[in-house]
Amino acid sequence: MVRGAVLAVVHAVVAVVVAAVKAGNPTGQSVVEAVSLGVLVGVAAVWAAVDGWRQVPERGTAWVVAALVAGVGSAVLQVIGRGIFVDQTGVSALGGALTGGAAFSALLVLLPAGLGLVVGPRLDPDRPREDEDEPVRAKPSPRPRG
């Protein structure tokens, strides 16, 4: 739940900053949008990779819930933030934000988190992965070597 709330705030802040840049310079925002998208993807991927590396229990379920919470939470926070800081966005924008915007934000969390969950456990080569069987060990010889 904490992951989702934190990511909702991060997504909303980035969306409000991008909207403010667009309002100030409508033709020069492509670089800002690309960098912000990369930041959002990177945050989810790195956080999930760390969860995978630390072998957090039930991390897959936690990230699905985080994606859903982040999607809905960021949609509401984006509308509030744009209304306060950028323009006069009102409650009428909430419907579109809760459908398309929430789905896009949820995917921006879920897809990189899935990648991070796959990559994270493989970062430590000495630790056996969950999907591997125990390593086969050689049986000790019954007679002493000499």
Rank of each mutant, 00 (worst) to 15 (best):
L40G: 10
P128C: 09
D126G: 09
A103L: 15
V21A: 15
G52D: 04
V17Q: 09
S105W: 06
I84F: 13
K22L: 15
V109P: 14
V41S: 07
F104W: 02
L107T: 00
A62H: 11
L98Q: 09
G38T: 06
V50M: 10
A45K: 00
R122M: 12
E33S: 13
V65F: 07
V50L: 05
V35T: 03
T99H: 12
A93H: 08
V109G: 11
E58I: 13
Q88H: 14
P125V: 15
V64C: 12
V72N: 02
V118I: 14
S74G: 15
V72P: 10
S36L: 08
G60P: 12
E33A: 15
A70I: 10
L40V: 08
P112Q: 03
W63N: 11
V31N: 07
L77P: 01
S36E: 11
A97V: 12
V21P: 08
G38N: 02
D124W: 06
G73R: 03
Q29F: 14
V76H: 04
L111C: 02
A45I: 08
P57R: 13
R122N: 02
V17G: 00
R122G: 09
T89A: 15
V72E: 02
G71Q: 01
L94K: 11
A93M: 00
V43H: 04
P57T: 04
V69A: 11
R54I: 09
G116D: 00
L40D: 01
R82S: 00
V91F: 15
G71K: 11
F104A: 14
G83L: 02
V69C: 00
L37D: 03
V64N: 07
G71V: 02
A70P: 09
A20L: 10
R59K: 05
V31E: 06
A67E: 13
D87N: 05
L111Y: 14
G90P: 07
D87F: 07
S30V: 03
A19W: 06
G114V: 04
A19I: 10
L123K: 04
L117I: 00
W47S: 01
A49N: 09
A97L: 03
V21S: 12
A66L: 13
G114K: 03
A67I: 12
G101A: 00
G101W: 13
V64Q: 13
T61P: 13
R122P: 13
T89L: 02
I84R: 08
R82D: 12
S105N: 15
G28Y: 02
V46L: 14
S105Q: 06
V32R: 05
L108N: 06
V50N: 08
Q55S: 14
L110R: 13
R82P: 03
V118W: 13
G114W: 12
V50W: 13
L115G: 15
L117K: 05
G95C: 06
G28I: 00
V65M: 10
G28T: 11
L40S: 09
L110D: 08
Q29M: 05
R54T: 10
L107R: 04
G81T: 10
V43N: 01
I84V: 15
A44L: 08
L68W: 11
V43L: 07
V39Q: 07
R54C: 07
R127E: 05
V43Y: 03
A62L: 01
G101Y: 00
S30K: 09
A20C: 05
K22D: 01
V119W: 08
